Computed example of a mutant assay.
Amino acid sequence: MTAAPTPTPLSPPAAGPAAAPVHEHITDAIKAPALVRLDGDTVLARFETMKVYAALGAVRTLLRRGRIRPGQTLIDSSSGIYALALAMACHRYGLRCHIVASTTVDSVMRAQLEVLGATVDQMPPSSSLRLDQERRVRHVRRLLAGRPDMYWMRQYHDPVHQAGYGEFAALVDAALPGERLTVVGAVGTGASTGGLTRALRATGRAVRLVGVQPFGSVTFGSERFSDPEAIIAGIGSSIPFGNVRHALYDTVHWLDFRHAMAGTVGLLRDHAVFAGLSTGAAYLAGGYEAARRPGGGPYLLLGPDTGHRYAERVFARHREAADPAELRPQRIGTPGDLRPPWSVLEWAGRQAPPGAVHTEDTEGEPA
């Protein structure tokens, strides 16, 4: 049985209430994370939806460059989180939005998109994530062929989606000053971890980047494995991503669904933080990294979304979750040594595995 968490010492009362900003649009209110200290030097950046940074940064940049214009329709495929961020950015800047939705988009998310003015085409149930992704890509291409006025955002391949994370980097730099910093986060599209790390390194900081992957993802070469329970969206992909810059990553952790679930449930149990599966995976990997390198400076864990869409698949099964304190990874020396359920490799800036190189022939839009 897991021991009760140690109570946090009472903080002294604040000197006085600070004036709360009045935001011009909801995107300004939800884009910045809550920064929560977990253990020692470990801090969680917990977002309602981190992809607001990606969508706002991309839309603003494209408008400024004249690549898109007010009133135009932006189109992309998504499993939900980016779709909502893009719909809100379009709402803010007077653009139309069309989403080719994964079969995994639920009725609540679809209703939000439609009320925001987005039109939604949802794919039918599929036997695999890859088939779902490929169907969506084909549908996007059919729509573009008939509607040349649409603009395909290509969030997984267009580096414009990294632009917004410079603002997040400035927030991190002010909140966690110093020479060294370790960033731990799900790789996913590569835009958040890559955009944040590049912006921080540009200031001269020594930033170590730890990426988290599921088994079955091509991004760092684990596609030969199968994890039937894995919810791969937001952590990895079955097709190559153009926005992943493999050479940025110092360390990579691969975790199966059960380990990610243990981290997700453990984060709620130990710190009262209700967050998604990729946040739990980062919590497990980050805790291991911080324990292995004590005194190595702040560890920033990225928590890109809340736990609501994992209520049934993860939180309702909390009694099945292992205690994170009892879990340890297998340290490996080469990608060929990779094996479930949890492996860690000092990636040390290696280039992309052959199957993870994005070309026009591998063009696609994953979950």
Rank of each mutant, 00 (worst) to 15 (best):
M1H: 10
A3W: 04
S11K: 08
A15R: 10
A20N: 12
E24M: 05
I26S: 06
I30S: 03
I30F: 06
R37A: 07
T42E: 09
M50Q: 10
V52D: 14
R65N: 11
I68S: 05
T73M: 04
L74Y: 09
A83M: 10
A89S: 15
A89K: 06
T103D: 15
T103P: 15
T104E: 13
R110L: 07
R110K: 12
V115D: 10
T119C: 11
V120Y: 08
V120S: 12
Q122V: 07
Q133I: 11
V137Q: 10
W152V: 02
A163M: 09
L171S: 04
A174H: 10
E179T: 01
G188E: 03
G195N: 14
L196S: 10
V210M: 02
V212K: 05
F215E: 15
T219P: 09
S226F: 03
P228G: 03
A233Y: 12
D256A: 03
H259P: 09
G263V: 01
G263E: 04
V265I: 07
F274K: 02
A275E: 11
G287N: 07
E289P: 11
P294Y: 00
D323C: 03
P329V: 02
I332K: 10
P335Y: 00
P341E: 09
V344W: 02
V344I: 08
E346F: 03
G349S: 02
A356N: 13
D361T: 08
